[in-house]
Amino acid sequence: MNNGNHHNGAATAGGVGPAGIAGAGDNQWLLRVRNLTKIYGEPGPRTLELTGPEFSSNICPDTDSIVACAEVSFDLYPGEVLGIVGESGSGKSTVVKLLYFDLGKTAGSALLYPYDQGQTNMLEASGQQKRRIRNHLMGMVYQNPRDGLNFHFSSGGNIAEKLIMAGQLHVGGIRERASQLLEKTEIPVRRLDDTPATFSGGMQQRVQIAKAIANNPPLLFLDEVTTGLDVSVQARVLDLIRELQQELGIAMIVVSHDLSVIRMLTDRTLVMKNGRIVESGLTDQILQDPQHAYTQLLVSSLL
């Protein structure tokens, strides 16, 4: 697990929380993912060789197992916004769901610097540890608000869940923080005690964002956040995300099939196809000078 190139041994032991990375040097990664692989079904010895973009397939011809994503490796730095783009079925959502522990990995490691100074593969932590990491160090915004919110609870209650999991047991304090977050996400505070079921799609998405950032996590996952929204609401949600990113300096992984969302939000981009990363680099570079044939197709179909 200890990969040895941990070039900031003097960094303060910050425990968990964004303070944990404050003492780290400029080149200290926040998240280091290596060989992340998810295979459904029984893989054979040649499964990884026989699937991928060169075969235009992620189904193993030998065993019929499905390679959702394979050998995904990247580093994410504090405050950086990384995009993952690709067609549907390319494995981009699988990557964030693995990192948020919604799915179990088949192979690979993910080190999160504030968790044990990045010494331990968080994908192999116990259920209790994983929940702790999730509550203190990560936030997730799903495409469908019903995945991220409990529609039987009020919007305040949904935010409270995240705060309670981090140990806040003061109703007044919870309501104050929840109000702050709603204000920040441009939801009228008087809707605090209404259920998200009574909200519009854009508002539901903003409640999800408020919940995701409730504990000031250093890392936020955004999975197709604007896909179900109409264009004017999309723009407001994207503005909000950009503002929050600048204000709070949260590192983000943005998953989208929409290149304009990627262009607007991200610094760096991974392009995925058939479960593999086919191209990665600065977002501007990829959009202006795509190298891989698939990326070229993607960019040209946008223009």
Binding site: G127, Q128, S154, E161, I164
Partner: peptide, 17 residues
């Protein structure tokens, strides 16, 4: 896993409503 957040939220909800 001593994961009791949902129970607490239901108490919070009861108080709020």
């Amino acid at each position: 896993e001593a994961d009791y957040a949902k129970m607490w939220v239901s108490l919070y909800e009861s108080f709020v409503r």
